[in-house]
């Protein structure tokens, strides 16, 4: 199962870069088989029978929320940059995450960077250090809720 997923990913990337003709499919399959045999033992990810449902949920639930948040973030940046005196209130806060696994943490950190007013600086064990433009003083739970709340719920169903 793991070998099959690795092979299909490599083949799809090869065909996207080279074009969909018969010769490229044959050559791409050969290259992908060789690379799969070389690489598959070093990758650590687990797949099970729920993988297609997770992929569908990733494509149709996570991506639209992500694009909507990206547009909101850009409107926020535009408002700050174009105002005469830039409203700033910066600080670095520590946010706890419940996601296990490197891929889930990477996706969460990328999502935090592209949401309004936040930038993830460092990931250590279960904590993500986040730089925010507008910090609320003396209320740690509120900050955490604002920063990682919406993505934590969606990604929790996808990456365990």
């Amino acid at each position: 199962m793991k070998y099959l997923i690795t092979f299909l990913t490599l083949l799809v990337v090869y065909l996207f870069l080279a074009g969909f003709t018969v010769e490229e499919v044959i050559l791409g399959s050969l290259v992908s088989v060789v690379l799969t045999v070389l690489l598959a033992n070093r990758l650590n990810f687990k797949v099970d029978w729920r993988f297609p449902f997770k992929l569908l949920k990733f494509l149709f639930v996570y991506i639209p929320v992500f694009i909507w948040k990206l547009i909101l973030a850009n409107i926020d940046v535009a408002r700050r940059v174009l105002s005469f005196k830039i409203p700033l209130n910066p600080g670095i806060v520590k946010v706890k995450t419940n996601l296990k696994g490197d891929l889930g943490k990477l996706t969460l950190a990328n999502s935090i960077t592209l949401t309004p007013g936040t930038l993830s600086i460092d990931v250590e064990d279960d904590y993500i250090y986040v730089h925010t433009i507008d910090i609320l003083k003396n209320s740690k739970d509120k900050n955490q809720e604002i920063i990682s709340g919406p993505f934590e719920k969606i990604l929790g169903g996808i990456f365990e």
């Binding site: 910066p90 600080g91 806060v93 520590k94 600086i121 250090y129 910090i135 003083k137």
Partner: peptide, 9 residues
Amino acid sequence: PDNLIQDDL
């Protein structure tokens, strides 16, 4: 920068 209000790092 010296304008940070809170610095957990």
